[in-house]
């Protein structure tokens, strides 16, 4: 007969799954900061986008009247001028994302197949970090030094001021490095054993890429493509340093709306365009998140 030994332990009284609320206090400073500098400004943008300022003309001088909330302002996002900025933005972002992703993927593969501690890899990563993060205005100046119409090194190119080709080419100088940075972990994740397995089963290099490597790298590649699209969409520094005569893309127009304060007769143009950007980028980033989840399944 089995003897059951029951030990009395001086255990603390069990509070079923409940943490004392005092632990949550530790997260408050962070939450307060994020509320004040991330949530509140976003809220301000959305709120102001739907504000209409009524103007009265008193003695021939326009006077700003009361503001009121009007969802109808959203239609103005699709007027001809605004549509033009969005079309240009999407064109530039799409072009540079696609070209940058393809060229960047080739460069990434060349970097990934080298020694993990090699000098080439270090230089490629440090250089990519500089161009993708710090680059900005300095890239436009470098490109100006290369091909500007008067005393450029390589060409005295009159197409320096063409949209989207010239500015697109400059964008590639931060888009390709960005691709290297975000795609490298995925290419590094390809295991040599998978290649060996394909070889042992009689597969050729083509078979390996068609049935193993390609399908594995496709989700991270598409994810990187979306991320780069969003990046080019919100890029602002380079295009300002390149040419400030005309607004081509949405960020330029937001900036000129905001700085010139001409919103007297219209709705707040900057807020409305910003809201459009939020919607567009949120769509892109949702797609990115979905692809990222798929990639995470095998990338450890």
């Amino acid at each position: 007969m089995a003897v059951t030994v029951v030990t009395e332990t001086g255990a603390r009284p069990v509070r079923a799954g409940r943490r004392p609320p005092v632990a949550w206090v530790g997260t408050l400073p962070f939450l307060a900061y994020v509320a004040l500098f991330l949530i509140l400004p976003t809220g301000i943008v959305v709120w102001n986008a739907f504000q209409v300022t009524t103007t009265k003309v008193v003695n021939g001088i326009p006077v700003t009247g009361a503001k009121h909330f009007d969802l109808g302002t959203f239609n103005q996002l699709f007027n001809a001028a605004n549509r033009g900025y969005f079309v240009n933005s999407i064109e530039l972002a799409g072009l540079t994302a696609l070209a940058g992703a393809i060229l960047g993927a080739v460069l990434t593969y060349a970097v990934a197949t080298g020694s993990p501690n090699g000098v080439i890899r270090r230089i490629a990563l440090a250089g990519s970090g500089v161009l993708a993060q710090f680059g900005g205005v300095t890239l436009a100046f470098a490109f100006f030094a290369l091909i500007n119409p008067s005393n450029g090194l390589l060409l005295h190119a009159s197409w320096y001021y063409t949209f989207p080709w010239s500015i697109g080419l400059i964008y590639l100088y931060f888009q390709i490095p960005l691709m290297v940075l975000i795609f490298l972990p995925a290419v590094d994740g390809l295991k040599a054993q998978w290649r060996e397995a394909a070889e042992n089963l009689g597969g050729s290099t083509w078979h390996y890429w068609r049935y193993v490597g390609g399908p594995l790298l496709l989700p991270p590649f598409l994810g990187a493509l979306l991320l780069m699209f969003a990046n080019a969409l919100s890029a602002f520094a380079t295009i300002v340093a390149w040419d400030n005569q005309i607004s081509f893309v949405v960020p330029q127009q937001i900036s000129s709306d905001l700085i010139s304060e001409v919103g007297l007769f219209s709705v707040n143009g900057a807020d409305l365009l910003a809201l459009g950007m939020v919607i567009l980028v949120a769509l892109v980033m949702t797609g990115y998140a979905l692809l990222q989840r798929r990639t995470a399944r095998w990338l450890r």
């Binding site: 991330l38 919100s234 937001i254 900036s255």
Partner: peptide, 10 residues
């Protein structure tokens, strides 16, 4: 998901 150019408006 909220670019700097948008945040700066707020």
């Amino acid at each position: 998901a909220i670019p700097a150019i948008v945040l700066v408006v707020g």
